[in-house]
């Protein structure tokens, strides 16, 4: 039962990608798309998803919808920050590698957290070892693990805890 749900979930995602790629709603395209996405889903569902339909719960969708504008705003801020540092003739940088801890458990959660940290102001994930993240910071404000944890990952975890 669980297996069938997972396969159907994977097939639905693949089918949406197919529709976006072909950009047409002809009956033949849709027919071939259903066959192809089901066929590929049969072989790849194990690596694709670990939770199946739980990803469609309304609470999770709500958090995703709230997270996307917040994330885009952070990306825009990050870019103006980097642009300022690039254009400034003296380059106000004070780089260093700091360590932080994360409370997220799953691989999806860590992937999303690392990507978010990389795209937001002045920080870049270098490595993930267990629940410790090593972060290159372009302007180091604190060297302490606890304070750095409060400043960098806690910024995103309120939403990613629900999404992971």
């Amino acid at each position: 039962m669980n297996k069938i749900v997972k396969i159907l979930f994977t097939a639905v995602i693949y089918f949406v990608v197919w529709i976006l790629l072909t950009a047409s709603l002809k009956i033949e395209e849709i027919f071939v798309g259903i066959i192809v996405s089901l066929g590929i889903a049969l072989f790849t569902f194990e690596n694709f998803t670990s939770k199946g339909l739980r990803y469609f719960s309304p609470k999770r969708l709500l958090y995703i919808i709230r997270y996307i504008p917040f994330f885009l705003w952070e990306v825009i801020k990050a870019n103006f920050d980097v642009a300022y540092r690039v254009i400034h003739p003296k380059m106000p940088i004070k780089p260093g590698i700091v360590e932080v801890k994360t409370s997220l458990k799953t691989d999806t959660g860590k992937f999303l957290l690392a990507n978010s940290i990389t795209l937001t102001p002045g920080t870049l994930t270098i490595d993930v070892v267990g629940d410790r993240l090593f972060i290159h910071w372009i302007y180091v404000k604190t060297k302490d693990i606890e304070k750095a944890t409060k400043m960098i990952p806690a910024h995103f975890e309120w939403a990613l805890k629900e999404i992971e």
């Binding site: 990306v75 825009i76 990050a78 980097v82 540092r85 690039v86 870049l124 290159h136």
Partner: peptide
Amino acid sequence: FLGPLGILRFPDVYNRLQAGTKSTTL
């Protein structure tokens, strides 16, 4: 344009990576 400019100006690999990733993505 600004991303590669940062890649050219910053002093070490990690700073270059920051400029390159963020600016080219946005």
